[in-house]
Every structure is written in structure tokens, then in C-alpha cells.
Write a protein that binds this DNA or RNA. Structure first.
Length: 610
RNA sequence: GCCGAGAUAGCUCAGUGGUAGAGCAGCUGAUUCGUAAUCAGCAGGUCGUGGGUUCAACUCCCAUUCUCGGCUCCA
């Protein structure tokens, strides 16, 4: 089972980081008088502090700030702590001229019932802060931190608020650990799917086609095809039927579904067709608006509606690797991880209310089966629920408290019955129901929802979907939206990083590279290639006139899982010598045994490693 | 979208107010090789795009497109 991240802000390490963040703020205010303070918490690998600066600063300014911080540490300033009653606290904050602190202090008192506000002073620097801190700046490591990046951040993370400048730092007890962290990040960058995507020729994103619209190159398309093949097999096994539906639709469909206007901000603007309408009233000149679809569900609901259904048909599972387009904000686009055009491993399962819970569990087991196959472990389940009090999402939920309560209870029961570890995240529900999201971390430790399993109690009713029950009455089914492999784009980005580009044989764009030792052996290499290709194995002979060492190097840098070497010995024995990616030991075997070995490995989707 | 940084050959990068360079990849030739880089030659860029300043712009200024870091881990 996946690990649920732990957090504690009370350890000596966090205390040190938190104190360093005050030293940072002090240094910045000394260097840039007039700087206003935001928040400055410890984080998993250091700390940050948010500022409103009197003038913009750049990365070139960071060394000077670090130097000032070291001077403050060397000055051995003791931290003094006191707690004040609200009125005294307000008075003191007024003297500090820190509007953000003032706002937060009042909120703490008004909304959270805090009775005393904490302050910490070291040297000339005073901050409103809960603490805890070290006793004296001299306890802080002079070389145990490094300011590493500068970023924009909104006060309280809300874009309607002031934009602040955030300074991030790594912080550890020793300089050595800081260096290790820097190395870790560098190592992670080597696995970054955007870098490997270029190196391995998997995909490209061009200015001409548009941002967030990746083009899959031949090698990357192999990955997609293999995933689709896997999904077809798995879904067949679990009783799904496949459908195929268009990428756009008329506006009305989204009024029915409720995506308009609720989801409009996430959609590409409509295409306006100023022409004779195709509505029944032939005389009326209608303006038809078409949208690129941001979701597949309305199309699938229409598939359900096209035929009459009995309770005997349920659960009815319809699946499609459906392409959708979402207008994600420019600044959030990120390689393949967040894009504007994506193809989703989607399915909609229509169930009776009684079937909902079992089917929901069955879907979650399917998710696990997939992740086990890939050896993915850095994920956890998140129960995303309705939060009627969240002001940011006001009006963004279907208004039906009773159904929310009921389906959330069912989702919780399903998770409990599975014995799952999960976290609850209020306010993250879909507009039509609660969901279980499968949260993954990229190599650079950013968390994304890779896949999701959702309950929909609302939309089938809006579409007038029905099935005939045992007693002859027409009833509305519930719907489960699920996408265990998420989208090709995001899922492949995680696979690239997970495998560091060295895919298991079944996924690898080139599965076997045949390397003839010299020109004389190319013919035998071709025979091997042909024998493999006959079994749909992606094999190719390296018939370049490079030296053998170079050919082996080329196979290694392109991370081909199996290299088959052929020379004098192998020709005589009708054999190959195989060398696997990342494995030292080599093995010579007859051609038939070799073909069988690779076929079996691919068929079972085995990942052969040292 | 917003704040900050950036964009030079297919890739990685150097360069500078006087008109662009390297390595790898590519192409050609020689080499035919037993386990991670054989040698030589050639070719490749309106320096993201559009304006402006200047005798002169890849370099300075403005705009624009795209990319990168970040945008509640909360006193």
C-alpha cells in the first residue's frame, strides 16, 4: 500500500528552519527597507518567506542576502518570546506596520478563537509568530542553508490578493546535507520526463501547434499504444464494452450536463457556426455553437441513452480512450503533466444504487492492479468531498445535501471495506459527487492527481437516463466515472520518471537492438530481427558502420532493454549473446530460446531487473 | 492569468554594440572492429517573432509568442 505523507512542524529540524526563515526576513528587511512580511514557514527541505519588496530582486541578489543572514547568525541574537492579549497585540502590530500580519491576527482571533497572539523578537527583528524557535541565532548552522529560488506567490494563495515574492531555501543541520539535497534535485532533474522526452524522442510541444498540445513522436506513440492494449485487455476482463465518440459537441449537451456554466472557465471557447440551424424548427435561423469536449461523460450518457436498458444490463460499463480539451491556465502548463489536449482512459459505469458500493470497490481494485503491474508505489488515495462552506467553490456543486451525505458515506464505506489508507480532502469533490483520487508525486516532488474514481448521483438524472427495474418501473441509474490510467499525457509522464526512461521490455519503443560485431554478421542479425518481428517484437539491427563499442553505447544511451550481440561464435551456434540494460551479466542462448524468452517477457509484462 | 527568470545549429551550451562558435547528432569518405564514444572532411543558424534606438543590434529599449521556477506545506 502507498505511504501517506507525514507532517510535523514541531521537531528540532523544523524549529531550526523556522528560525532561519526569521533570519531571512530580518536580512531582507535590513537590505530592502520597507519590505512587508507575509508567511515564512518551515517546509520539507527547508523554508520560505513571502515578502512585498519595494523593488524587484533577481537570483543575483540572493548571495548578498545569504551573507547578511550569516552575519545575523554570527551576532548570536537571542530569541525573545511573548504572548499578548488581542488588543495589545493589535496595538503592537500597528506599530510594526505589517498589514498582512494585522489581517491575519484579526482573523485568528475572530475566526479561530485564538486568545493570545505570539511574538518573537531577535535583535532588532520582531515578527508575529506562533513559534517555536531556537533560543539564539548562534544555534543556527551558518552553512546549513542555501537560498535557491525566487518565486511569485499570492498572499494566502489567493490570486485576488497581493502578489508577493517568495524566497525558497534548503536548510539542514549541516552543509553536507544541503549539498546532498542539491544533488538529489539534480538527479531528479535527470529523470524529468521533459528532458527524457527530448532525449528519447517521445514527444514534442511546439509553439506553432500551441502550448499544452503535445505531439507524440513514433517512440512515444508506442507507449500510448501499449497502454491502450493493456487497458483493452484489462477492461475486457472486467466486463467493459468499448465505444467511440467525437471530440466535439453542440452546446446544449453541456447545458444538460451542467458543465455550462459551471465548468466554462475550463473549456476552450466555443466555435460559432453562423448558418442555417439544424434544429427541428427549420425556418429559424439558429446560431449553432460547438465546443471541444472537456469531458467524455456527456457523450457516454448519450451512448447509454441510445438503447433501452433493463436492470439486467447493469452494471453497464462503457469505455473509451477519449480525447478531451481543457483550457488550463497558461502558467500551470507543465510538459506532459498538465496539458490542454489529452486522451483519457475513461469509462462510465451505470449502476443501481445497490450496486454502487461493490462496483466502486471493484474499480479501486483495478487501479491497484495497474499500479502493481508498473511497480508504482509513490501514491496515496484521497477521498475528495463536498465542502458547502468553501467560499471559493460557492455555487460549484450540485445542490443536494442528502445525496452528498449518502454517497460520501458509501465512498467511505467502500474505502473502509478495502482496508485502504486514505486522506480526506474537503472541497475537492467533482460538482456531481464525491470521488477517490489517486495522488502521485513527480520526481521533483510535486503532487498530481493521476487518476480518479468518482460517484455521480446527479448527471444521469439530468440526462433522463433510465433503466427498467424488476417491477417494471423506470429508474435512474447512478454513474461511476473512472480513469485508472488517467490520461496518456500525465500517466506517461509519471512512467517516464518512474522508470527513468528505461522501460520494461513490453513498453519499450525498441525492444531488442541486434548488434553485429562486424559487417560480416549483419546477415545473421537480420535473420534474428526477422524472427523477432514475426512475433510482433520491436527488434532492429544496428547495421551502421560504427564500432561495436559505439553501437553498444548507443543502445545503452537510448535505454533499449535488450541488446542481442552476434559475431562469429553466435553465427556458428545459431545463437545470440544478450545484454540487458543496466545489468552486467550476459548470456548466450539459441535463437529459438531467445525469441521465446522475449515473447514470454512481453506477454507477461515482466520487468526484468538486476 | 499573475510574479520572477529565460529563448543562440536537431540536442547541450559558449559568445559579444563592429555582423556567430564548440561538442554531440547529421551527411560523405576511410575503417569492419567482441562489449559505453575509430579517424578525416562537409554541411548546418534571418541568434523565438515584430517594432524601436544606433553609422552599426544576437548584444540596448518596447511589445509579443513560447519555455522554466512558483502561486496556502499557512502567525
Amino acid at each position: 500500500m502507498p505511504v501517506i505523507p507525514e507532517e510535523t512542524h514541531d521537531s528540532p529540524l523544523y524549529r531550526m528552519r523556522h528560525s532561519l526563515s526569521h533570519v531571512l526576513a530580518q536580512a531582507v528587511q535590513e537590505l530592502y527597507p520597507g519590505t512587508l512580511l507575509g508567511f515564512g514557514p518551515p517546509i520539507d527541505d527547508g523554508f520560505y518567506y513571502d515578502f512585498v519588496l519595494p523593488k524587484p530582486i533577481g537570483p543575483e541578489d540572493l548571495p548578498a542576502i545569504e551573507e547578511r543572514m550569516r552575519a545575523i547568525i554570527a551576532a548570536a541574537q537571542p530569541f525573545h518570546h511573548d504572548d499578548l492579549e488581542p488588543e495589545e497585540a493589535y496595538a503592537r502590530i500597528a506599530g510594526m506596520n505589517e498589514p498582512h500580519k494585522a489581517e491575519y491576527a484579526r482573523e485568528l482571533v475572530a475566526k479561530r478563537g485564538v486568545e493570545r497572539i505570539g511574538f518573537y523578537r531577535n535583535g532588532p527583528f520582531l515578527d508575529m509568530c506562533e513559534g517555536p524557535h531556537v533560543a539564539n541565532t548562534s544555534e543556527l548552522p551558518r552553512d546549513g542553508f542555501k537560498l535557491h529560488s525566487l518565486a511569485g506567490a499570492y498572499w494566502r494563495g489567493d490570486e485576488r490578493n497581493t502578489q508577493m515574492t517568495r524566497i525558497y531555501a534548503y536548510a539542514y543541520p549541516t552543509a553536507k546535507e544541503v549539498r546532498q539535497r542539491v544533488q538529489e534535485i539534480e538527479e531528479a532533474k535527470r529523470r524529468d520526463h521533459r528532458k527524457l522526452g527530448v532525449e528519447l524522442g517521445l514527444f514534442t510541444i511546439t509553439e506553432e501547434v500551441g502550448k499544452g498540445l503535445p505531439l507524440w513522436l513514433p517512440a512515444g506513440t508506442v507507449l500510448r499504444d501499449e497502454l491502450e492494449k493493456l487497458a483493452r485487455e484489462m477492461e475486457f476482463k472486467y466486463g467493459y464494452q468499448r465505444v467511440s465518440t467525437p471530440h466535439l459537441t453542440k452546446e446544449g449537451l453541456y447545458h444538460t450536463s451542467g458543465h455550462l456554466p459551471l465548468y466554462e472557465a475550463g473549456m476552450f471557447p466555443p466555435m460559432e457556426l453562423d448558418e442555417e440551424g439544424d434544429l427541428p424548427s427549420a425556418s429559424s435561423k439558429e446560431r449553432s455553437r460547438y465546443y471541444l469536449r472537456p469531458m467524455n461523460c456527456p457523450h457516454h450518457h448519450m451512448v447509454f441513452k441510445a438503447q433501452k436498458h433493463s436492470y439486467r444490463d447493469l452494471p453497464l460499463r462503457i469505455a473509451e480512450y477519449g480525447t478531451v480539451y481543457r483550457f488550463e491556465r497558461g502558467g500551470t502548463l507543465h510538459g506532459l503533466t498538465r496539458v490542454r489536449g489529452m486522451t483519457m482512459n475513461d469509462a462510465h459505469i451505470y449502476v443501481t444504487p445497490e450496486q454502487l458500493e461493490d462496483e466502486f470497490i471493484s474499480v479501486m481494485r483495478m487501479h491497484q492492479e495497474y499500479y502493481d503491474l508498473f511497480g508504482l508505489t509513490n501514491w496515496y488515495m484521497r477521498l475528495s468531498t463536498w465542502d458547502p462552506d468553501d467560499p471559493k467553490r460557492a455555487g460549484k456543486y450540485v445542490d443536494d445535501p442528502e445525496s452528498w451525505a449518502k454517497t460520501q458515506a458509501q465512498a467511505t464505506a467502500a474505502l473502509e471495506r478495502m482496508g485502504a489508507h486514505y486522506r480526506v480532502s474537503p472541497g475537492e469533490a467533482a460538482f456531481y459527487g464525491p470521488k477517490v483520487d489517486f495522488q502521485f508525486r513527480t520526481v521533483l516532488e510535486k503532487e498530481f492527481t493521476v487518476s480518479t474514481n468518482q460517484i455521480d448521483f446527479a448527471v444521469p438524472g439530468r440526462f433522463g437516463l433510465t433503466y427498467t427495474d424488476r417491477d417494471g418501473t423506470e429508474r435512474t441509474p447512478m454513474c461511476i466515472h473512472r480513469a485508472p490510467l488517467g490520461t496518456h499525457e500525465r500517466f506517461v509522464s509519471f512512467l517516464i520518471e518512474h522508470y527513468g526512461g528505461a522501460f520494461p521490455t513490453w513498453l519499450a519503443p525498441v525492444q531488442v537492438r541486434v548488434v553485429p560485431v562486424g559487417e560480416k554478421f549483419v546477415a545473421w542479425g537480420r535473420e534474428i530481427e526477422a524472427a523477432l518481428r514475426q512475433h510482433m517484437i520491436r527488434a532492429e539491427v544496428d547495421d551502421s558502420d560504427h564500432t561495436m563499442g559505439k553501437k553498444i553505447r548507443n543502445a545503452a544511451t537510448s535505454k533499449v532493454p535488450v541488446v542481442a550481440i552476434v559475431g562469429e561464435r553466435e553465427v556458428e551456434a545459431r545463437a545470440v549473446t544478450i545484454r540487458r540494460y543496466g545489468i552486467q551479466r550476459q548470456e548466450e542462448m539459441g535463437i529459438d530460446a531467445f525469441v521465446d524468452l522475449i515473447r514470454g517477457e512481453i506477454q507477461q509484462r515482466r520487468h526484468v531487473r538486476e
